[in-house]
């Protein structure tokens, strides 16, 4: 198992946002976290990426204990993420966004950076090439020199994914990647995610669009009020009465 989460608990001012959540993600699969609003999905992401510290529980990644590490250390360990409310570097170019995602691949330090012209040394060339290739995959290579904030919303989502891939992570956490996309864009996204999985990437997905989830996910974990209420394949979860009850009247898209 690439990622093993056990007994994860986080409280905010006495209210448990996540309680005793555990799951395992196998290498090369897409694992989906679903649940009604406020179920604690994003909190789970924030705990895995070190943006929040768990009150209890453990997170093991490829046999290494991650809980308690800082976000940048977790990124270095091979986990990156995207954000539900986009967190692009809006004033930087599209290419620079992806290049920044590849930060840990470089070594240039403060002093060295001042002494030589950027863009012409071997390290920068390699990162530019690699980043352009990633942008090509999401069809943004033509916009490489635009400011990220100038991209249409759908492209911004894709850019965030490209940025998250730039460091060559083993696990990527995608927080509602389809939110705000139209149906064509969502199709493209689903195809892209499947392609990434076929190339061996592991992903954990939080998503409200059930059609996409059912299409791409290998396994699904259902959260409600911070607790796990079901886990299984898409077919098993769809048939689970507890899941249907949790969603009933809340979200008709499940049916």
């Amino acid at each position: 198992m690439l990622l093993e989460v056990q007994g994860l608990t986080k409280q905010f001012g006495g209210v448990a946002a996540v309680r005793d959540v555990g799951f395992q993600v196998a290498e090369g699969t897409i694992f989906a976290l679903i649940g009604p609003n406020g179920a604690g999905k994003t909190t789970v992401f924030n705990l895995i990426t070190g943006m929040l510290r768990p009150d209890a529980g453990s997170i093991n990644f490829s046999g290494r204990r991650l809980d308690g590490l800082k976000p940048y250390q977790i990124a270095a360990a091979g986990i990156t993420r995207t954000f539900q409310n986009l967190q692009l570097f809006g004033g930087m170019t599209v290419l620079e966004n992806v290049m920044t995602g590849a930060h840990i691949k470089g070594k240039t330090g403060f002093i060295k950076a001042m002494l030589r012209r950027p863009g012409i040394n071997a390290e920068d060339k390699q990162i530019i090439e690699h980043s352009m290739a990633l942008l090509g995959e999401v069809g943004l290579d033509g916009s490489a020199n635009l400011p990220a904030a100038a991209l249409p919303f759908g492209s911004q989502r894709l850019l965030e994914i490209a940025r998250a891939l730039a460091s060559g992570p083993r696990l990527v956490l995608l927080d509602e990647p389809a939110a705000g996309l139209n149906s064509t864009e969502t199709r493209t996204l689903a195809g892209y995610l499947k392609k990434l999985r076929n190339n061996g990437l592991t992903m954990v997905l939080v998503e409200h669009d059930m059609e996409t989830v059912m299409e791409v996910a290998d396994r699904i974990l259902v959260l409600n009020f911070g607790r796990v209420i079901a886990e299984g394949t898409p077919a098993e979860v769809q048939a689970d009465p507890k899941v249907i009850r949790a969603y009933l009247g809340e979200d008709e898209r499940i049916a």
Binding site: M51, K70, P71, Y72, A75, L88, F89, G91, G101
Partner: peptide, 14 residues
């Protein structure tokens, strides 16, 4: 510049 734009995203970029 990434820190200025989004400290969270910068951290998660390593």
């Amino acid at each position: 510049r990434a820190i200025r734009e989004s400290e969270h995203a910068a951290e998660t970029a390593g």
